[in-house]
Write a protein that binds this DNA or RNA. Structure first.
Lengths: 234, 234
DNA sequence: TTCATTAATATTGTTAACAATATATTTATT
DNA sequence: AATAAATATATTGTTAACAATATTAATGAA
């Protein structure tokens, strides 16, 4: 009798890294909304590990601001303020601009080809109505720009921001609002990079990000959901 | 009989935050060179805390790349590669440019006054030959720009870079080379900001940073020093 | 009922003992 | 002496038991 749990306690020895990634992914997929309480024993049982390991994971998540820890009161998924949200996006614009600048300087046809491939998959996913996958590929597009630029620190920082972004969107944007990246804008960015026009590419990228950024505003509270369901769904 | 140790075990209950800051400061002050082994028991005794607390601190330091942890082989102060060093500086240029941009847009006389005060202290310290203090104030200048710009994420990221910078300098720049910030360049940056000339301010800042960045190159090894002496000196 | 007080439970925090691994030392062999 | 093997020591990793705190439930008085 197989359980619906993500992990098979008997065969898999779930590593700290695994757990970290799974929680990060759950946040990225909007399965772990801001404010969700993260209880140690519950997580330990869920992942089939000892409490100590969970403890360490929570500390690491807190270091990257994905989780907030309060002394004696445990950890919960962070609920960034509107201001923090705007700051994240402003910083992101700065970093992604620098990434584009680097890419244009390199002027490598191989890079352009790789990006166009990614664009195609993204477009396909949208056309096939697979929104979840399309969203993932859209995030990948931004990450891939950073990877191709070859600056590991920018990669780290951009990842940091990307991980925190869903929390901003869920907290400060209506779930109905159009928060996803537009494929055609991604395409225009690649075109500009291919043309060697860094200024244009950066301009489009900034508009692209400002489109979301400008929707950030303080929003009312949301209620506390069930942990296990959220983490393990799908 | 008072020991020379930084902490008085009987009165002070050294917090995790304290220990973290002290180690970070030791790195910033070039008292903890890259590669230094950080043994848990030794640190625990040094700070008068249990090993568990040290363990957590080391994990947090590893998260911010100040320390490297190898399974079963403990932690040591990170020794960033030359490439990582260059990446750090390139990212720093992007972030500090954005910070200046923000400051210029704000166009606040109060900001200019605060910066000029800081410049004065910095200059005084140099003139008085207090190089250690001058260096600290020079770092403060960059940090203060970020604080005045008011973007907490940029502050975080810049701090992250600043903390890692000494390791790059010690690993990849000759200790004889002129690595410190030049006060007159700081002054020129403030002047340009006061003039509302973001482009000029950014240009100077970039030169300012590139001056160090361009000196980064692979360097031979250095030997393993004594931990206690380094951490507790001064 | 409503509020405050107390007790019960749940949750996080700390520790010491032990296990696992790595490093250093000793011993043996050529 | 030089190398390898065996032993001893040092160091990190894990755990279970307990302590401290917070949260919830129960009780009692107005």
């Amino acid at each position: 009798m197989t359980s619906q749990l993500a992990h098979d306690r008997s065969t898999t020895s779930t590593s700290e890294e695994d757990i970290l990634r799974q929680i990060e992914q759950a946040v990225l997929d909007h399965r772990l909304p801001p404010g969700t309480k993260l209880k140690e024993v519950q997580l330990a049982e869920l992942f089939g590990v000892k409490r100590g390991k969970i403890r360490k994971v929570l500390t690491r998540l807190a270091n990257s601001r994905l989780v907030v820890q309060m002394p004696n009161r445990g950890a919960s998924v962070a609920k960034p303020s509107a201001e923090e949200g705007r700051d994240l996006f402003a910083t992101r614009r700065a970093i992604e601009s620098a990434i584009i600048e680097t890419l244009v300087v390199r002027h490598d046809q191989n890079i352009i080809n790789q990006l166009r491939e990614l664009l195609e998959s993204e477009q396909q996913a949208y056309q096939q109505g697979n929104n979840k996958h399309a969203l993932a590929l859209s995030v990948d597009f931004h990450r891939q720009l950073a990877i191709l630029a070859g600056n590991t620190v920018m990669q780290e920082f951009l990842n940091d921001i990307i991980r925190r972004t869903p929390l901003v969107i869920l907290t400060h944007l209506g779930s109905d609002t159009d928060n996803r990246c537009r494929n055609q804008e991604h395409e225009a960015i690649v075109d500009a990079i291919a043309d060697g026009d860094a200024g244009k590419a950066i301009e489009i990228m900034n508009q692209h990000l400002l489109h979301i950024e400008n929707q950030i505003d303080d929003k009312p509270e949301i209620e506390q959901p069930n942990l296990a369901t959220l983490l393990l769904s799908q």
